[in-house]
Design a binder for these strands. Sequence first.
DNA 1: CTGAAAGCGCTAACAA
DNA 2: TTGTTAGCGCTTTCAG
Lengths: 349, 349
Amino acid sequence: MRQRHGRRQSPKTNVTIQDIAKRAGVSTATVSRALANPDQVSERFLQKVSKAVSETGYTPNKAARNLRSQKSMTILVVVPNVVNAFWPEVLRGIDDELVAAGYDLIIGNLDNLIEREERYVNLAASGQIDGVLLLSGRMPVARDRSMGDLNLPIVTLASAIPGLEVPQVVVNERAVSAEIAQHFIDLGHRRFCYVAGPEGNFNEVERSAGFTKRLADAGFSASDIIRIPAGYSFAAGAKAGHAFLSIEHRPTAVYCACDESAISFVKVVRSVGLDVPGDVSVVGFDGIEAAHYCEPTLTTVKQPRAQMGRTGARVLLDQLDGKSVPKGLIELDAPLVIESSTGPPRTCQ
Amino acid sequence: MRQRHGRRQSPKTNVTIQDIAKRAGVSTATVSRALANPDQVSERFLQKVSKAVSETGYTPNKAARNLRSQKSMTILVVVPNVVNAFWPEVLRGIDDELVAAGYDLIIGNLDNLIEREERYVNLAASGQIDGVLLLSGRMPVARDRSMGDLNLPIVTLASAIPGLEVPQVVVNERAVSAEIAQHFIDLGHRRFCYVAGPEGNFNEVERSAGFTKRLADAGFSASDIIRIPAGYSFAAGAKAGHAFLSIEHRPTAVYCACDESAISFVKVVRSVGLDVPGDVSVVGFDGIEAAHYCEPTLTTVKQPRAQMGRTGARVLLDQLDGKSVPKGLIELDAPLVIESSTGPPRTCQ
DNA sequence: CTGAAAGCGCTAACAA
DNA sequence: TTGTTAGCGCTTTCAG
């Protein structure tokens, strides 16, 4: 085990491009080319190199390559909170596209903690990142700088940052939320409830606005719509369910801003003997798998999660390839899928 | 915008340690030390350097550092399939520990595809990875080599690889599965069903063995235990549910090898009017959140997911720090939590 | 305590 | 087509 200048004893990759060059009887440049641009190397040398490579199990050292080529072939994906059933499928879409293009991805989990942003701003600033996929709906900031100032390609995904001049992949949150309102209206409901998401969040604003706007347009007044603050989690939905039960003259139609809160909301409401949808109709948002296996099957908005991930990744890759990409919203279609948790209010039958 | 030798036009980090050195009127060595070993630098220079750093927003280039120091400060986490509610919380535990120690993590999603392993073997071989956390229960292999031969610290987590001489963090799968059998026996059940996981999987083997062993020990014969092949997913559980319904003389106690399959199993069984637990008692495994919000609340084994993640990460970090670590199984306790999906069989009441 | 200088392994001008 | 060579930005020995 050779021990070179300043080298740790760590027994890592030992075989370098030099070794291959020596073994194949060519220059390192030829080895490099043979690996990256085989068509620029003669068949004879190609053979020799590939033989040496497979004999030694050589893999190019990434740090050296990154340093030299000034890029890292890795993408940072900033997720607000990995512990939410919505993300995995989105990440899978991203992963598919990125891996196919030869990129690795580092997942930055904010865990809903703003302090954690600093870490990823620094990482992004360290030259170790070629581009950023922002799923958190917030531009990460450190003490004294913002990820937006790093001059790094950024694409937002699933949530948008109003006014930011980058590609932003979203779904038709507002329109489909209006559709939910219309669905309730068509069923004959007159009193509504909106179980909200995190305050200020882009998705929250859109969903709330789309829903209430359509209700207002249909002639309902603010007093016909009760808003329960909650969040994107089972726990928040359960809490909202209890709040709902304590309402005097209860609404019959409830729009929960995510599936997880909808599922737990339904469970709480049913636990006191109310029927869904007989007494209360409930709609969710996201289309996670669990929404399909709760009782009753949840009427919800099916977000094209993997497709969103792939789309965002693709746009980022295009940008990295120097192609021109659309700045601003890229809207995907998320359909309202009607299942068994919504129906006409019993009072109307 | 300067344009140097071989440099792409990519406008990345422009400020280097040289710039800081010049600005602070010191050598690059001093800058490096000021940042890494402040106690080796005089107060005066420390000030100067830190001033220059904050004025310029300097962040050390990671590729250069990695190349020089022969380590990457990044850990590869190999996940069999990110689309499963079990993982996020585990990943969070890993992330917590690793981030606190200054490591980044790259998540390698196998998507249950063996071909995908090659990619991560190569990544691990590229010197870009300091250690591996293996959650897939299989040693990744490429065409001609195995990740196990890379001489890289590896820790397995959540699933084990029998015989592998590395730390392997698991839970008491076998013992708690026996406990499930005992729970059923105590309730008075006489006919049992096991809804299996993926064939050959470590967890599958353990859970199945623990369950059937205890039943056998209690005097039940193989014909009292029906095994339905399934997998760790909602879809597999639903399919198993249908298979269950077509059984002539149906068991009254069902152990589903994961919560997702248990939840969908319950839904299917209830859809034909059977009562849970009146007609069928069902137990799951994992303790994912959804198990708490389905109906009836699922009796299940609560895996300490975040703790598992943290433990695995910690052991790997210890190994990286040169501390000695236990080779072999590190068993964490996963308790059976009894909820409303299990009860005495109606025929016994 | 500080600076000079030697590379880490690779890629890409440039020259041949 | 191929080889020579100059760094990419940083850390760390070694000398002062």
